[in-house]
Amino acid sequence: MDFTRTHFELFGLPTAYALDRDKLDASYRELQNTVHPDRFAAQSEAEQRVAMQWATQANEAYQTLKHPVDRGVYLLKLHGIDALDATDTRMAPAFLMQQMAWREAIDEARDARSAEALDMLMSELRQAHKAIEARLGVLLDADKDYEGAREAVRQLRFMDKLIAEVGDVYEEIED
């Protein structure tokens, strides 16, 4: 199995943050149709093992490219930058202030046990997420500003955590 291929090359996609999602989905389907262990269930153990390795790789590549944060982290890694370096915690103060405000809003919705408040918060968070994704695309593809991109990726991770927390609160107030 050729491990030198990047995830982008595996699916025949350009190495860029901007993503043709339909093309990715179609390539993924085609690849899994070829390599999935279900295609080799009646074959030898050697072939089944190879199929499992390939299908595992296809899933890993697909999930990485599909996910906005993982795709950013992966692209930065291809450029030799570790976006998840735990020693670097710089973050724009305005972003941190906004984070605190959102966190308070989550607490308020929890205390009020209000699904409506959570709905509103969730759509606001998703919008903010989308905006950062768009900025990340420009930083990576047009500006080649990898330091800036690194901060955007970290911001997206913060957003993901907030969105997950809102999910947890939904569960809390539903139980």
Partner: peptide, 17 residues
């Protein structure tokens, strides 16, 4: 036959893609 299986799969993938 493991190496053989790998080469066969590589070829299948190249064709499919």
């Amino acid at each position: 036959t493991t190496e053989f299986a790998q080469r066969r799969m590589d070829r299948n993938v190249r064709r499919a893609m």
